[in-house]
């Protein structure tokens, strides 16, 4: 659900460090559900930009007015809620960032929310699923492709 609206269209930007070096890119996303969830359930993203995949180890997530956190840290936010109304910012580490112009982003979110107990529960405690396999994305089953213009 909300397939075409999960990434805000005008949100793709390069990110600079304190010294002005471009260290990656960011964009804004919403939860692909009709409700919010405890933040700990948020398991990362399948992100491919112009054919290059950026895995969880280069992703951090900024929400609730806090600094961007890795998904290992997010996992421990067991009493913090990601409210339905709120947009989060995904930060992807990539030296030099993205080139100016249009980019093709393939995108799928993984949030381990479900309707009660599932046969996969124990397995996902031991080994959380890889985002992009469809696990944790039951309301947007397919990888969605966005064409986004890099903003200044």
């Amino acid at each position: 659900m909300f397939d075409n609206f999960l990434i805000r269209k005008d949100s793709l930007k390069n990110e600079k460090d304190d010294h002005g070096n471009v260290i990656g890119f960011t964009f804004a996303a919403r939860n692909a559900n009709y409700r919010g969830v405890y933040l700990s359930l948020h398991n990362g993203y399948y992100i491919k930009v112009d054919g290059i995949q950026y895995k969880r180890d280069v992703q951090t997530f900024e929400i609730n007015g806090k600094e961007p956190r890795s998904f290992e840290e997010i996992k421990t936010a067991i009493w913090e809620h990601w409210d339905y109304d709120d947009e989060g910012i995904i930060h992807v580490k990539k030296e030099g960032g993205l080139a100016p112009g249009r980019h093709t982003i393939e995108f799928q979110q993984s949030v381990l929310a479900a309707y009660g107990y599932l046969p996969t529960d124990e397995e996902w405690v031991k080994c959380p699923p890889e985002p992009g396999t469809g696990a944790g994305s039951d309301k947007t089953k397919n990888i969605v492709t966005y064409e986004l213009e890099l903003q200044e």
Partner: peptide
């Protein structure tokens, strides 16, 4: 109301 049973992530 809802109940996501993986909330604690280190156990079901």
């Amino acid at each position: 109301v809802f109940c996501d049973v993986l909330q604690f992530r280190d156990h079901v």
